[in-house]
Every structure is written in C-alpha cells, then in structure tokens.
Amino acid sequence: MSGTLTFPLLSLYLSPHTMPGFASLLQHGFLVPMGQPVPMMELLLALPGFSAQYLEKTVQTIFINGVAADTLDQELAAGTTLALSAAMPGLAGAIFRRQGIHGSLRSRPVAEATKAQPNAGYLRVKLFNSIATERVADLLHEGILVDGPSFHDFARRREELFAPPTRWQFEKREPEWPALLQAVNAIPVLRIQAHDTQGA
C-alpha cells in the first residue's frame, strides 16, 4: 500500500496468539499515501481482505472526518480520516448506521465530512471492533504505514505483545526494547510488516 515510496521498516515476528492483540493498533489508524482524490470504494477494495461483499455485509458504519456517511461513493482526499465499524449496539448504532432509518437524528450533515484536514499527503484509515479483528492479520502481513509516535505510544501501552516469543528487526537490526521505542518515536512515517512464527 506504500506504492513506490520507501519508509523505515519494522518487521515483527508474531505468534498466532499475539496477532489479534494488534487489532487495537488499527483503531489508531494506518496511513495511505494520497496524490489525487480517490473514490472510497476503490481505496477500500485495494486493501487486503476487503471485497465488495465484505464491505456490503460487514461495514455498517462509516465516518469521514468524524461525520457519519451513508454511501461508499464519496471521493477521499489527503488529510481525510476514514473510520469503519461493524454494527454498533443501541441507539447510537441505529443513528450512525449507513442508510439507516434513524440517520436524520445525526447532528451534523454528511456534506461537512468532505472538508479534509491539512496533512502531508496521507489519508488515515481507522478500523474498529470486528473489522479490526478480522483484518489485522491480512493488513500486517502485507504491511501498513503508521506514524512513528502513535506506534510508540501503542507499543508502550501494549508492551506485553512484544514479550517473547515476539521478535523484531528494525532496518535489519535487532535493537533492544528501549532503543526501538526511541527510534520509532522519532520517525514521522514507519512501515510495519508482520511475519508468522510458531511460538505459543
């Protein structure tokens, strides 16, 4: 998903039991390099594990810059934050569900969502609940881009995910944990790619 651009690479060697813990990283969002605006459907279908059927059946709530959207037809520009969720419970879920009958209860019009925020050429995609859990392995195996400080904060909070048997290589080296945290915190955009291990 990074195209022809190159970024510092952090390779993670994860056991099958550890991989699901990284789903919460997707809630912080991963970055997609953007030039010209791209239709939302085109962007999502380019992500690993996302098919038209999956989008139709599973993606029930869409937020563009914090505003609920009803369709996948909008164009997305650099600086936009796109958040996807499966069905949410209760009245909030009913209000924000795309094409839901309670959409009129939303307090802000969808048109406001087209106003992207200034950004250095990236779109941010956030995944929540079952979508994050179901797609985390596909995304990490292919590799995602994240901003270094956000990954630093995630790694500090979820340090247990990096305990053995998890291993890592950063730019083909194996720094100690404190050095790794310091390094990624100083990197604006970092590429993370996961590899399976047989550890417990």
Rank of each mutant, 00 (worst) to 15 (best):
L127G: 04
P89W: 02
Q99L: 10
T4I: 06
F128H: 11
L31Q: 12
R173H: 14
I62L: 14
A68K: 06
A183S: 15
S150K: 08
L145M: 11
F170P: 05
T4R: 06
F50E: 06
N185V: 00
Q117D: 09
T61R: 11
D73H: 14
R135S: 11
H28Q: 09
T197Y: 01
A92K: 04
P8M: 14
A194Y: 03
E142F: 00
D138C: 06
A120N: 12
A78S: 09
N185Q: 11
P8V: 12
E159G: 03
L44Y: 00
A116P: 10
V59F: 11
S85M: 12
L84G: 00
T6R: 11
Q182Y: 01
A120Q: 13
A94M: 13
Q27E: 14
A111F: 07
L76C: 14
A86V: 01
Y13T: 02
G143L: 15
E159D: 05
F22N: 08
P33C: 03
V125A: 09
H17I: 00
E134C: 09
Q198N: 10
M41K: 10
P39L: 06
Q182T: 09
P149V: 03
R156K: 13
R106D: 03
K172W: 04
I192V: 11
A77K: 09
E176H: 13
P178Q: 02
Q193W: 00
E42P: 01
G93S: 02
T80K: 06
A77V: 03
G148H: 12
D147Y: 07
A83L: 09
P33E: 07
T197A: 04
G21Y: 04
G66I: 14
T166I: 05
H141M: 08
L14N: 14
T166A: 10
G148Y: 06
N129G: 09
W177E: 10
D153L: 12
F30K: 06
A163H: 10
A194H: 08
L161W: 05
I131T: 07
T166K: 07
L55H: 04
K115P: 00
T58Q: 15
V67C: 08
W168L: 01
L44R: 00
T133S: 12
M19L: 11
Q169H: 04
V110L: 08
G79P: 02
K126M: 11
F154H: 07
P33S: 04
L145R: 13
T81W: 06
L76N: 03
G199M: 03
G103F: 02
P178K: 06
T18M: 01
P164D: 12
G100A: 06
V125Q: 09
H28W: 08
F96Y: 15
A137E: 15
Q60M: 08
V125S: 03
